[in-house]
Simulated assay, not measured.
Amino acid sequence: MKIDFRSDTVTKPTPEMLAAMMSAKVGDDVYGEDETVNELEHKLASMFHMEAGLFCPSGTMTNQIAIKCFTQPMDEVICDQTAHVYRYEGGGIAYNSMASVRLLHGQRGILTPEMIEPEVNEENIHYPKSSLVVLENTVNKGGGKCYTLDQIAAIHHLCAVKGIKLHLDGARLFNALVATGDRASDYGQYFDGISICLSKGLGAPVGSVLLGSAAMIKQAKRVRKVLGGGMRQAGFLAAAGIYALDHHVQRLAEDHQHAKALAAALTETNYVESVMPVETNIVLFDVAKGFKADEVVHALGKKGILCNTTSNKTIRLVTHLDISAAMIDQTIDVISKLAI
């Protein structure tokens, strides 16, 4: 049996989620006539106290649509140098929005107003216009590190003073909410756009929702069409998202505990130099001197434990709803006895 820690995107729908999908009421969403898509968009917008939502195939699409809506060609996007919108979205900021990027070096990807303010360009024809700040919560490359609402509020205040839009890549936002105890309803006041991914920790097979003002979502729907993201009877997919929101949020705490157990086991081995502190469901660890990350991954794979490298010395494991407590125990046993 393989135990798959490569990502929380590898999950399969539960039987109950499949049943919800198969019984969904559907229509043509491009005409706005899919009842289940409309329900999902309204549900998330209400949850985060925002005006409207737009269901899309992926978090990359919701992020790229938001950036397109909040910038003009020759503008500049400010984000951390590890940000998903910069590293893992195929150069989409340049391709889709014709904007440049100002990269900051946050602590595990977490930005502060003190980092951002000096990088906001003054009005000058030689400089791109600083028009958007993008945050990521949780921070993937930061090992699932979370922003708190107080940190977000301070950045929002700076953006408001500077006249800059603020977007959140919330790929694993519900992990952050469960870990911090913050409320979704407090988020809408701080962001012009929020991208919510349903296919990671929440376990839906496909889909993300972009949240924003009614006017922004109207524009976003046009951009989605241009990007080829208009779907027809998408309610079958939206139903999985609704089921996930109703049944899979609080159980994220279990994934977090599993990740912490794995981290504790890794610290006791001779082939691990350090483990990044675990807050949510991502475990990042560096291999010790004399070991290679890809060799450790290969050795774990031979024992049925699947994971990925993120650099030549760093390995990532991600817990999710398809990982049981028994699987964690088995993995810890493999980790403790692994000979490389």
Rank of each mutant, 00 (worst) to 15 (best):
V249S: 11
A293N: 05
N281D: 11
I305K: 00
R222E: 14
I323Y: 11
M231A: 14
H247Q: 05
H247I: 07
N312W: 01
M327S: 09
K225S: 14
G241E: 06
V223E: 00
M327T: 03
L300A: 06
R251T: 15
R251N: 09
G235W: 09
T310G: 01
S213E: 06
K218R: 13
R222W: 05
L227E: 02
H258A: 14
A215F: 01
R316I: 14
E254L: 14
F285V: 04
A264V: 07
V296H: 04
G228R: 04
F236P: 02
L211T: 07
N270V: 12
E279Q: 15
T309Y: 04
K303D: 07
A220I: 00
L252P: 06
I305V: 15
S213V: 04
L210F: 10
N312T: 08
H298K: 12
L284S: 02
A293G: 05
V226K: 13
A220F: 02
I305T: 01
Q257A: 12
M231H: 13
M276C: 08
E268C: 05
G241W: 07
A215R: 12
L284A: 12
R251V: 15
K302D: 04
A326E: 14
S311C: 03
G230Y: 11
K218L: 09
V272S: 02
K225H: 15
K260V: 04
A253H: 11
K313V: 13
F285I: 06
